[in-house]
């Protein structure tokens, strides 16, 4: 699916007047591309993903999927939200299987596919646990897997590894890259971690402080498959990192 964001702005009307979250942003994302977005906190990254998911409408401009404006929700676009949003009354298995259940997939197949995906992220021993019985990292893995399980063409991810410790984070980055390489969905991945942004992406977008604009759009010319554990040894990685970091630091401190 070809995504096009054409002069999109978003304002929020709050108690203290109008807040401009996004300055007009324009951007095209090709099918199968892995794009990461970095930017200071509150610059409108989540807002941008909400617009692409069809959960909110832009105040100006157009969000297009394959040339047609996104009006409302589209099952071909999956969304791993920043909060894990697991259903507290469902076991981990039933949480992960929910998209299949909504699509009318039979119980046995649902359970089997949920089990298979839970095993891929090391959660197969916790299928019958309720969310309150899991650690933050385990819940977040469940949140990710329940979008991967129904294989949407586009996957929006909002700081999915944010609450995880460094080791788990690297492990899941490697896993995500493996899965992406197999099925090649379009991924739009928001993170506040520049190392992660470069390690994963075909393209890194740097956003300005609010109201968000795209400051830089950098292609990442590092070969694949990549080894996220040793990516910092790569010369191209270091060149990109130092270059983008200078701009990012300016946005964060101002």
């Amino acid at each position: 699916m070809l995504l096009r964001i054409d002069g999109v702005a978003k304002n929020f009307v709050g108690r203290n007047g109008v807040v401009a979250a996004l300055d007009p942003v324009s951007l095209t994302i090709s099918p199968g591309e892995f794009v990461t977005i970095v930017g200071p906190s509150g610059c409108g990254k989540s807002t941008l993903l909400n617009l692409l998911a069809g959960l909110a409408a832009p105040s100006g401009g157009q969000v297009l999927a394959d040339g047609r404006p996104i009006a409302g929700l589209d099952r071909r676009i999956g969304y791993v939200t920043q909060q894990d949003n697991l259903f507290p009354w469902r076991t981990l298995r039933d949480n992960v299987a929910l998209p299949l259940e909504l699509a009318g997939v039979g119980r046995a197949e649902r359970a089997a596919r949920a089990q298979e995906w839970l095993a891929r992220v090391g959660l197969d021993g916790f299928a019958d646990a309720y969310p309150h019985e899991l650690s933050g990292g385990m819940r977040q893995r469940g949140n990710i897997v329940r979008t991967l399980i129904y294989e949407p063409e586009v996957i929006l991810m909002d700081e999915p590894f944010g609450p995880l410790d460094a080791q788990t984070r690297l492990g899941l980055q490697a896993l995500l890259l493996r899965i992406w390489q197999q099925t090649r969905p379009t991924v739009l991945f928001v993170t506040h971690d520049l190392v992660e942004a470069i390690a994963l992406a075909d393209r890194v977008l740097l956003m300005s402080a609010r109201p968000g604009r795209i400051l830089r759009d950098e292609a990442v010319a590092i070969g694949r498959p990549r080894d996220v554990f040793f990516i910092h040894d790569d010369a191209e990685f270091r060149r990109l990192h130092d270059g983008i970091w200078r701009d990012l630091a300016r946005e964060v401190t101002v």
Binding site: P99, R146, Y150
Partner: peptide, 11 residues
């Protein structure tokens, strides 16, 4: 958030 998740998943 729970409603949104279900809607995104096609409920």
């Amino acid at each position: 958030g729970l409603c949104d998740v279900a809607r995104v998943q096609g409920a």
